[in-house]
Structures are given as C-alpha cells and as structure tokens.
C-alpha cells in the first residue's frame, strides 16, 4: 500500500504525517512520473488556483485524470475544488467528480470555523462525532450523476461527497488528531 500526496503547494506534509501515524507509506507527487505504482492519491488543502496552474504547467492534468479512472483520489478543501466538474470560475480542474463547488462559500478567513459533525460511516461514527475544521472553505453546491452526498452541516450545506473511489471534503481532516477519515480513505483505496 503506497499513497501519493500531491505536493505542488499546500499542507501535504500534514497528510503524510497522518498516513505515517497509521502505518501507511506515502510518496510526494510533483511530476507525472511520481504517480507510477501508487494505490491512491490525496490532493491536499492549499490554494486551488496555485495547485491547478502548477498541475497544468507540469503536464499533470491528463495523468491525474487517468489515475482517477483507476484509483482512489481524495481531495481536501482545495483538493475537493480541483476534483470537481465546475466551480463557476475560470481555473484548471480535473473534472473527475459530478459535483459543483463554490469557493470561499462561507466567507473570508474571519468566518473560518470548527464544528462537530455526525459521520456514521466512520469507525465509531455512531457514538463519536467527527470534529471538522473549515478554513476559507468551499461548499459543494450540488451533487449529480454518479456522485452522492456524504456529509452535511446542520444548515444543510453539503461538505463531503463520494463517487465510487473518489472522495471530496470541504474540511481538513489532516489538521486534527482524529485519523478516522484517513483510515476511511485507505479502506476506499483497497475496495
């Protein structure tokens, strides 16, 4: 089991640290050749415009699309934006998931927040809430086609979606001590 973490920009080291702590080896991905032999890929939080432009400049868009046809990919925040079909803005996207995402949907940094969510699909999810961290976060405006809603905020905003082995979260599991989301993704990789 070897999981790649896209390392063009953002909090990729936070992801590799969690993977290491649950005994999963990982590799940083900066160029197309780095994808060879990986079982799954995480696209971290960061600035989606920066990540998209660097992916385009180093010819990663097509290889990432092909990787996503065969393997699991999880995008957190900027990564979720990058996985989506549509953000109503002109920026490079992988367009792998049937979701429309709105960037900075909750406002600016002053509106960034933390909240407990009920996530029954996680280990102990029935009894232990999942503490989620949202930073200048995107919202999943709509889910269609083969994508399904995974998590909503109490006010109904969609903040996690899944499509086969593709996973998108508006929040940052890599910023908390709770590793259940990473374990969930590793299982998805093996399914």
């Amino acid at each position: 089991m070897n999981i790649g973490v896209l390392a063009l920009q953002g909090d990729f080291h936070e992801h590799t640290k969690v993977l290491q702590s649950i005994g999963v080896s990982s590799r940083l991905v900066k160029l197309p050749r780095d994808l060879t032999g990986l079982d799954g890929l995480i696209i971290p939080g960061g600035e989606s415009t920066t990540i998209g432009k660097l992916a385009e400049d180093y010819d990663l868009i097509e290889p990432l699309r092909q990787f996503g046809q065969l393997h699991a990919i999880w995008g957190t925040c900027a990564g979720a934006i990058f996985l989506s079909k549509d953000v109503k803005r002109d920026q490079p996207l992988l367009r792998l998931m049937d979701i429309e995402v709105q960037r900075n949907a909750f406002g600016r940094q002053v509106d960034s927040f933390e909240i407990d969510l009920q996530a029954p699909f996680l280990e102990y999810g029935e009894s232990q809430p999942y503490h989620a961290v949202f930073i200048r976060a995107p919202m999943i405006k709509s889910v269609y086609g083969k994508a399904e809603i995974l998590l909503k905020l109490p006010d109904g905003a969609i903040v996690a979606a899944k499509q086969g082995r593709l996973l998108a979260t508006s929040f940052h599991p890599e910023l908390t001590e709770d590793d259940r989301f990473h374990r969930y993704f590793v299982e998805l990789t093996q399914s």
Binding site: A7, L8, Q9, G10, D11, F12, H13, E14, G45, G46, E47, T50, C77, A78, Q109, S112, F113, E114, V133, F134, I135, R136, H172, L175
Partner: peptide
C-alpha cells in the same frame, strides 16, 4: 486552529 490553519494552507507557496 483556524488562525494557524490558514497559514498551513499557504505552505509551499
């Protein structure tokens, strides 16, 4: 967490 978190999102940039 969210104050330090935004800086974490800027890493490598």
């Amino acid at each position: 967490k969210v104050k330090r978190g935004l800086a974490q999102m800027l890493k490598g940039g």
